[in-house]
């Protein structure tokens, strides 16, 4: 029984780490611009599909292909901000959400045209020999996902708390006008926020692709799960998003293992609803008051 639970926890943490990275991307953009970016899942898909395409077509080594893909996705993220979100400044939240949903459909369509409906796999970074912990096992790639996620989360934490640019992005989220008045280049900060989100999304995609495979529509479910994780943790709180992601992964895996695999998604969403019911700002979110 203990071995079994250990396996559920290991599975939950790996899956949760992916959710956490997607959720973090949601949180960063929301923080900087009050926009819920529903094309976050497509960044994940593009990161994975891009690196597979670069390493297949031009025969680039995987690490170089991955870097190219990440750069490409960052450009996509910045372009999304510049050409779709920025022109609609001042529009209502619903409008911007519709814009990002539109962008996600567009990106999925482009991926479909470029790569078709096939499912693609990616080689594992360091072999597929399972690592045994008692009777539970995990793959070296699982460690890559967890390690990569930890490094990225710490990096984001450092960026927001200890660099001028990071603090400037936070300032924009607190009060855009005031930030502009003290000389912060708001539109540049927005680009940075979208670029950073795209970077996180694409890296998450590359880290998990060897385990999960990828296809043009792989971003849909990941985007949805990442969004739920961000809400669970408290929207707009980066560390809350990470905690929410891990928690959602653990809940799903334990529910599948201990209760019923058929209802694991339902159980995840029921817990999400309960949290929102009792604490509408999420587990780690600060209660906010809207000024009218």
């Amino acid at each position: 029984m203990f071995d079994q639970i250990l396996q559920f926890v290991l599975t939950g943490v790996t899956v949760g780490a992916t959710y956490a990275l997607v959720a973090l991307g949601f949180a960063i953009i929301y923080n900087a611009s009050d926009v819920v970016n529903f094309s976050q899942g497509e960044f994940v898909m593009l990161g994975a599909m891009g690196s597979i395409a670069f390493s297949a077509g031009n025969g680039l080594p995987l690490w170089l292909a991955a870097i190219c893909a990440v750069l490409l996705v960052i450009c996509v993220g910045m372009a999304l901000q510049r050409f779709a979100i920025a022109p609609a400044r001042g529009a209502s939240v619903v409008t911007t959400i519709i814009i990002t949903i539109g962008a996600s459909i567009f990106l999925r369509g482009v991926a479909l045209l470029l790569w078709g409906k096939d499912i693609f796999g990616m080689p594992h970074f360091s072999g597929e020999e399972p690592i045994k912990i008692g009777e539970a096992t995990l793959l070296p790639q699982n460690l890559w996902v967890m390690g990569g996620a930890s490094v990225l989360v710490l990096g984001v934490h450092y960026f927001f708390n200890h660099t001028t640019n990071g603090k400037a992005v936070l300032a924009c989220s607190c009060n855009r006008t005031a930030a502009q008045l003290v000389g912060i280049n708001v539109s540049r900060m927005m680009l940075i926020a979208y670029g950073l989100s795209a970077l996180l999304g694409s890296l998450a995609g590359i880290l998990v692709a060897p385990i999960t495979f990828t296809s043009y529509d792989a971003g849909v479910m990941l985007g949805l799960k990442g969004f739920s994780a961000a809400i669970l943790g408290g929207f707009g709180n980066p560390m809350g998003a990470v905690a929410g992601g891990l928690l959602l992964g653990l809940i799903e895996s334990l529910a599948a293992g201990l209760i019923s695999s058929g209802y694991k998604d339902a159980i995840g969403f029921v817990i999400l609803l309960l949290v929102l019911f009792f604490k509408p700002s999420g587990l780690f979110g600060k209660a906010s008051a809207e000024r009218v």
């Binding site: 079994q4 396996q7 599975t11 899956v15 992916t18 096992t137 792989a218 293992g257 695999s261």
Partner: peptide, 20 residues
């Protein structure tokens, strides 16, 4: 009689149950 979602990325939890 286990199941998984169409876009699920990891089925080790279900399979660990089957193993027992």
């Amino acid at each position: 009689d286990e199941s998984y979602g169409a876009k699920d990325t990891d089925m080790t939890a279900q399979l660990a149950k089957i193993r027992d």
